[in-house]
Design a protein around this nucleic acid. Sequence first.
DNA 1: TATGAATGAGTGTTCATTCAT
DNA 2: TATGAATGAACACTCATTCAT
Lengths: 221, 221, 221, 221
Amino acid sequence: MTAAKPGAGTRDGKPGAGTRDGKPGAGTRGAGRPRSAEKDAAILKAALDLLASHGYTRMSLSQVAEAAQVSKSTIHLRWKTKADLLTAALAALRMADAPAPSGDTRAELIAILEDFAATVERVRGMALIGTCLAEEAHTPELLALLRERTVLPRRALLRQVLEQARERGEILPDADLEGAVSALLGPYYADYMAASSPRSGWARAAVDLVLAGLRAGSDTR
Amino acid sequence: MTAAKPGAGTRDGKPGAGTRDGKPGAGTRGAGRPRSAEKDAAILKAALDLLASHGYTRMSLSQVAEAAQVSKSTIHLRWKTKADLLTAALAALRMADAPAPSGDTRAELIAILEDFAATVERVRGMALIGTCLAEEAHTPELLALLRERTVLPRRALLRQVLEQARERGEILPDADLEGAVSALLGPYYADYMAASSPRSGWARAAVDLVLAGLRAGSDTR
Amino acid sequence: MTAAKPGAGTRDGKPGAGTRDGKPGAGTRGAGRPRSAEKDAAILKAALDLLASHGYTRMSLSQVAEAAQVSKSTIHLRWKTKADLLTAALAALRMADAPAPSGDTRAELIAILEDFAATVERVRGMALIGTCLAEEAHTPELLALLRERTVLPRRALLRQVLEQARERGEILPDADLEGAVSALLGPYYADYMAASSPRSGWARAAVDLVLAGLRAGSDTR
Amino acid sequence: MTAAKPGAGTRDGKPGAGTRDGKPGAGTRGAGRPRSAEKDAAILKAALDLLASHGYTRMSLSQVAEAAQVSKSTIHLRWKTKADLLTAALAALRMADAPAPSGDTRAELIAILEDFAATVERVRGMALIGTCLAEEAHTPELLALLRERTVLPRRALLRQVLEQARERGEILPDADLEGAVSALLGPYYADYMAASSPRSGWARAAVDLVLAGLRAGSDTR
DNA sequence: TATGAATGAGTGTTCATTCAT
DNA sequence: TATGAATGAACACTCATTCAT
C-alpha cells in the first residue's frame, strides 16, 4: 500500500480527464503548455493522505489544493469530481513486493503478515479502509479499488506461498486455501476492532494456527 | 446489534433528559408536557439507519428529522450535538442474548458466529463499522461505543464458550483464548474486505480451524 | 439608574400582560395561584443585567429564564414578547434621589455629575445606552423609556440647581439652562467615546466651565 | 464619516485579499479572474448601511448579500467572518477634510461641529455608535475602529484649531485642551440622549461657552 | 400558575463546482 | 494550462414563540 511512483501509469482511473486523448496524430504533443506531471503526483499524494487522515467527506478539495500547492481549479481540470480524484488516488496505491522466497513457509507467511500490518499502520490504513467501507453504498468504486490494488494482491501473495507448501506436501492436498488466507489476515482486523492495535505476536500465532489446522485436518467435521 | 427497546434503559448519554427518569408508576411525573417516547425512539432509529447508510459526515440532522418526522429542534432538545445524538444511537445498540448452552462447543461457537454475521448484515454493520473507523481520529467515541456495546460483548460470549471447553479438557489448558477469539471472528472481516460477503460456511471452517489448533497445539513454535 | 424595589409599581409598561386586569369585582383576587411577585422581580432584574452585558439581540430569553430561575414560559406568561419584557425592565429603572441641597451650586452640580458617572459605571450604563441607541429604529420604546426614567430626571435635577443659582443671581438671568445641562453632561459621553473612561476631574472641569460661561456671558455672540 | 472611495487604500484588514495590492500600472496583475471592485464597494456599503440601521447582531450576512447583489460566499471569500466584514466596513469610514483655515477660531470650530452633526445624521451615526457601544464587551474592535477612524481624527481637528488660538493668545496658555474638545462635542451626545436631535444652535452655543471659559479661566477652581 | 416539549425561521459558515481571466 | 473569483446548496445549531400537561 504505497503511492505509486509518479509519472508511470498515474493516468489510470482518470475518467473524464484527458482532453488530449481523443486527439489525432498520436505522438504530437498538442499546442500549449503540457500538464505538469509533478502536480499530478502532488495532488494524488495529498488526496490520499487526507483521505486517510480525515475521511472522504471530511476532507475538502481546498485542503488537497493547499497541500499540493496548486489551485482548486487545477484539480478540477484533471478530475471532474471529488469522487474521481479519490478514486484515482486509490488507484495509485501499490502493493509492496513479494518477499524473497526462502523455502520456509512459516517464515514467509509471517513476513507477509508483518509487512501488511506495518503498511496499514504507516498509511493509517484502518481509517482508509473505514472510509471505503463507509462509502460503499455511495461511492462503491473506492472499496472496489482498495480491493483491487491492495487487498487482492496481498491475498494472492499469501495464496502463492500456501500453494507452494501444498506442492511440497507440507499441508493437506484438499486444504481450503481461500479460507486459510482469510484466517491469516482476519485476526488483524478482529484485533483492531477490539483495541485499535493487534496483539503482539498476532502474525506468528495466526500462521501457527493455520498451519496446524491445515496439516492435521480437523477430525470433527 | 439490535436497537434496544425504547423505554428501558435507553436514556444513557442523553444530556438534556430533564427530570423524568423513565421509571414507571413513580407518582411524581415532573411538571410540564412529558417528552414523547415515540419521538425518542424514532429519532434514534432514524439516526442509526442513516449512520449506516450514509456515514457520519454525509448524514445530516435534517435527514434524521425528516425520517423521524420531527423538527430539527426536537432533536437538539434531546441531544446537544450531532456527535451526542449518534453516540446515543450507537449506545442504544444491544447485543443478542447468548445462545442456550448445549454443551456442544463446536455448535455453540458456530451459532454465535452466524448470529454475528446475520446481525451485521441486518443493520448494515460493515458500513457502520467503517464509519466508526473512518471517524476514529475525529470522533473516537463512536468506535469506543461500538466496541463497548457490540464487539466486546460478542467476544466475551465466545471466550466464555472456550473457557468451558477448556474446563472440560477439550482444548489445551495453556491455549491463548484471546487469540482464538480473534481467529474466530477475523475471517468474517477478511472475507468482507475481499468480496463484501463471507464465503459460505466461513463460520464452520473458522471454528474447525481454531478447535483443531487449540486441541493439537502447534509443534513448530 | 437602579432597579426599582420589587412589588411597588413594577407592573408598569407590561402591555399585553394582565389577564386579570379585565376581571369584574376589583378586590377579588381570582381563583388559582396568584402570580409570584418574587418571580416578577427576579425576571426583570435578570433581564436588565443581561441587557447591559449582552445587548438586546445577543441576550436570549433562555438566559433570562436561567438567571431568574424560572422557565421560559413563565416569562412569556407575563410579557408577550422579548421587546415587552425589556421595555418593562427598563421601566423598572429608577433614578437615585437628589442630593441634599447645600446652597453651594458648584458642589451640588459636581455631586450630581459624579453620581451620574458612578451609576453608569455600576450598571454598565454605556452598553445599555448603546443598546437603546442601536435599537432606536427597531424598538424605539427602549430609548424612550431610558430617557423617561433616567436621562430626563437627571437633567431635571441639574436644571433645578441651575434655576436656584439663577434666583440667587449667581448666573445671568437669560442663561440657556437646557444648553447648560447638556454642557454639563456632554463631556462624559464625549470622553467615553474617546477612551471608554472619563478624564479624571471631568465633572469639576465641566461645572467650572459652565459656571464661568454663565456668569460672564460670552461677548462674541 | 464617509465611505472611502473604493480602490484607494481600502484593502486594510481584508484578510484573504490575495495577490493584488491595488497599485495601478504594475504590469503583473496576478493570475486568474480579478476580484470585482464594484462588489467590494457594494458589500462594504451594504454592510455599513445595515450596521447602522439594524445593529451588529440583528443584521445578517444574507441581508448584506442581498443588498449588495452578491452571494453570501462572495462575502466570505473576502472576509472570513462577520466581525471581519464589519470591522472592514468601519475601517473604510473616512473623516471629512479639515475646513479651510480662516484664522477665525470661532467660525472654524463651529464649522467642524456642524460638519460632525451633519455626518452623524447622514450615516445614522448615533445608531452606529450605539451598536459599537453595545458590542464593546463582545466585539471591541468595532468601538476601537470607530474611535480610530472617526472620533479621534475629529478631536484632533478641533484640538488643532484650539492650539492655533492659544498660539495667537486668544485663550489661556494653560487651558485644558482635551477637556475643551470634550466640552465642544459633548453637548451633541447629551442632546441626542435627551431628544434624538440637537437643540438648534447647539454648536454655536458650545463654542461660545468653551471660548468664554478658556478666555476667562475659571476663578472658582 | 407554571412547566417542559415542540417548532419554524433564521444564523454564520463551508463546500464542490463553474466562470472569467 | 492554470489561476482566483463567484456561486447555490447545504450544514449544525440557536432563538422566540406556541402547545400540551
